[in-house]
Design a protein around this nucleic acid. Structure first.
Length: 694
DNA sequence: CTTAGGG
DNA sequence: CCCTAAG
């Protein structure tokens, strides 16, 4: 009978018809969150916005008028340095997933008063082509570097205080994370309330709050928001060599990266597990780091119009967003270029953030990407201050308050290992840095476009209290470009790139080594990270607790990045470094996972890996459907060889038997056919199948 | 993005 | 696991 068929598919024994019929992909997709491409904006932009604001502030007292209430940043001129700006994140959008509910969300930063903090993390500014005044400027973040660099010019911390810990980082985290302030609009995803969303601003170590979340990235994905700010810059040196000025920014270890987790109600960002890890990875690894995000100007001054950058992504499954780059990366193969450009190009008219939020809240996917993306203004700025620019011996001292680096927005599965987090962040940083950035010099609020002018001519050496540096994305912007318009500064994307410099040291010191023991040669972060990861026995999923421990580890990462950054190849093409990804860490399937896989395959058949993934590994972020397919392949192989030849954790024979049975079964019945009759029975599906319920 | 396979 | 060609 027909009816019966439906129930039991193979009738005979048992493999049941696949519970889940294969629906058109389009439909299926909808279930999952969908994201539009649009949000390339990212942190970068946000930062830029903030920076811009700061600049403005510095320039003109407080020009900003917060149009939108919170969004404005008010910073007293002087205060800039110290004043942490408040950045708020708002999730722009959520997406709901059927079960898993994944939501993607973008965060928007708002600035609110005092909270914003910007810490100079690392930044490098490549210099523009020829700068007489500043010829190749390279920023070195590593402390070591400072030493190395001769120091002709010393940067003094403008304010002494930005302790890393201090207000800046800590607050930042708080602030950002703070749900309240953030005004997150969360709506859907309640289910996931449980899911913690961790936002890390920077280092895990940060503070108590984070601790809360810390270890726990419990369930779903936690999103990590890593704003990169340059440190308060305790000190920096600008050695000035003939024409060249090098800027060294030292970030003190910790500061540089502090992450906060904030678990919160914010929204759960759980993306479908599906491709999660992989995607992230891809994104990260994308070779395209270089594609620097091109941001449009942020209009800092005008909060209303541009101050805020909404950035949200509509992308479907982005687990992690890195600024534009990330996205780009994700798309790499396809059109990332396209997306970037288009996105940026479109400017959203100024949509108010609030609007955006709402939308996001509603899950409105449609929100025009443009809006989200639009970021205008300076991407980031460094402000230096303290007018101590007295030239001594012809040397000018600069104190840079903060150098902002674009923020990164990262979402990772909670089950991600700390190592992966580190790596992710590192990569994100690298990507950002690797992007093309220009450094702009502002003197008394004005941009100095002529690179050939000397400091003296520019007046920088004399007084300028208002000397400022800006990091600009390499966008072709008419208005904003500072020094050189599109000169890309390319940093090598690679984090690793310069082992030579010996930057590793700082990093290792910071955290990795500590937490992990000792990092192997720290040529690259990745390696270290990996190492770390490996070293730890991370059980698959959740060894979140350990994360806490490592939390500090992150800190170091920045350093690494810094280094990488520091190495600024002026002209060299960016090294392509962006190496792709390192191999994912190996995560052998546990017996339970095998069992789940077997069961799912028995039910769904082979050939529907995506469904298998959803069905049985939806929450295993690190298992992609490809992984499952591969595992199945190996299982079939394993089952067919003698036990002696098998390696690794032994898989119960019964499971292997089921594997063979299911394999045989589905080989005969194309899994596709499911819907219909599969008459003949293949032989012997395992009765087990019957049990499957699902 | 998914599948399906080879490496 | 990775990478890719094909859908």
């Amino acid at each position: 009978m027909v009816s019966k068929k439906r129930l039991y598919y193979g009738g005979f024994d048992g493999f049941r018809a696949p519970v889940v019929p294969k629906a058109p992909r389009s439909l299926r997709r909808n279930w999952h969150k969908k994201s539009s491409e649009g949000s390339e904006i990212c942190p970068f932009e946000l930062l830029a916005a903030v920076a811009g604001k700061l600049l403005e502030e510095s320039e003109s007292s407080a020009s900003s008028t917060g149009s939108e209430g919170k969004e404005q940043i008010s910073i007293p001129k002087d205060g800039v340095k110290q004043e942490p700006l408040d950045v708020k994140l708002k999730p722009l959008r959520l997406e709901y997933l059927d079960q898993g509910c994944c939501a993607e969300s973008g965060f928007v930063h708002e600035h609110s008063n005092p909270e914003l903090k910007i810490e100079p993390l690392l930044t490098d500014l490549p210099q523009s082509d020829n700068d007489s005044g500043l010829e190749h400027a390279s920023v070195v973040t590593t402390s070591d570097f400072l030493k190395e660099v001769g120091t002709n010019v010393q940067l003094e911390a403008s304010d002494g205080k930005h302790g890393v810990d201090g207000p800046l980082s800590g607050d930042l985290c708080d602030v950002n994370m703070d749900t309240n302030r953030a005004e997150l609009h969360t709506e859907a995803v309640e289910k996931q309330s449980e899911d913690l969303t961790a936002v890390k601003t920077c280092s895990f170590r940060d503070t108590g709050k984070s601790s809360v979340n810390h270890g726990v990235l419990s369930k779903s994905y936690s999103s990590v928001h890593v704003p990169f700010f340059s440190d308060p810059v305790p000190s920096a040196c600008f050695p000035k060599h003939k024409g060249n000025v090098k800027i060294g920014i030292r970030d003190d270890d910790e500061n540089s990266f502090s992450c906060n987790h904030h678990s919160t109600k914010m929204r759960a960002f759980r993306l479908q597990s599906r491709a999660g890890y992989r995607r992230i990875r891809k994104i990260l690894t994308a070779k395209y780091w270089k594609a620097a995000p091109k941001l449009k100007d942020y209009e800092l001054s005008n909060p209303t119009s541009g101050g805020v950058n909404p950035f949200d992504h509509n992308k479907k499954n982005m687990y992690m967003r890195k600024c534009c780059q990330a996205e780009a990366a994700s798309k790499r193969r396809k059109l990332f270029h396209h997306s970037l450009k288009s996105d940026y190009v479109q400017e959203a008219s100024s949509e108010s953030i609030s609007n955006l939020h709402e939308r996001s809240a509603r899950g409105d996917k449609k929100r025009s990407p443009a809006a989200s993306k639009r970021a205008r203004g300076v991407t980031s700025s460094v402000i230096n201050h303290k007018g101590s620019f007295q030239s001594k011996d012809g040397h000018v001292k600069f104190s840079i308050k903060s150098f902002k680096v674009p923020e990164l927005h990262v979402e990772m599965p909670e089950t991600s290992t700390v190592g992966s987090l580190k790596r992710t962040i590192m990569e994100a940083v690298t990507a950002i840095l690797g992007g093309e950035l220009h450094v702009g010099v502002l003197v008394q609020g004005k941009k100095v476009r002529d690179d050939n002018r000397t400091l003296q001519q520019t007046g920088i050496s004399l007084n300028s209290d208002t000397l400022g540096f800006m990091l600009e994305p390499n966008l072709p912007q008419p208005s904003e470009s500072l020094i050189q318009e599109e000169h890309p500064l390319l940093l090598p994307c690679d984090t690793h790139q310069s082992p030579a410099r010996g930057p590793a040291t700082p990093i290792t010191d910071l955290g990795l080594s500590n937490s992990l023991g000792d990092p192997p040669s720290a040529t690259s972060l990745d390696n270290q990270v990996e190492m770390n990861r490996e070293s730890k026995p991370l059980p698959d999923e959740v060894s979140t607790e350990e994360i806490v421990v490592d939390s500090k580890a992150l800190v170091p990462v920045p350093a690494m990045n810094v280094e990488a950054l520091s190495i600024v190849p002026l002209n060299h093409k960016q090294s392509k470094r962006s190496e792709l990804s390192q191999r994912r860490t190996r995560r052998p399937f546990s017996v339970s996972e095998v069992e789940a896989l077997v069961e799912a395959v028995e039910t769904l058949g082979t050939g529907r890996w995506r469904d298998v993934k959803i069905r049985a590994f939806d929450d295993a972020n690190h298992r992609t459907y490809v992984d499952l397919k591969d595992k199945w392949k190996t299982l079939v192989h394993t089952a067919s060889i003698s036990p002696q030849q098998r390696r690794g954790e032994p898989v119960p024979q019964d499971l292997l038997d089921r594997v063979l049975a299911a394999h045989a079964y589905w080989s005969q019945h194309q899994s596709k056919q499911q819907g219909k009759h599969q008459s003949e029975g293949v032989g012997s599906p395992v009765k087990v199948c019957l049990e499957l319920e699902s």
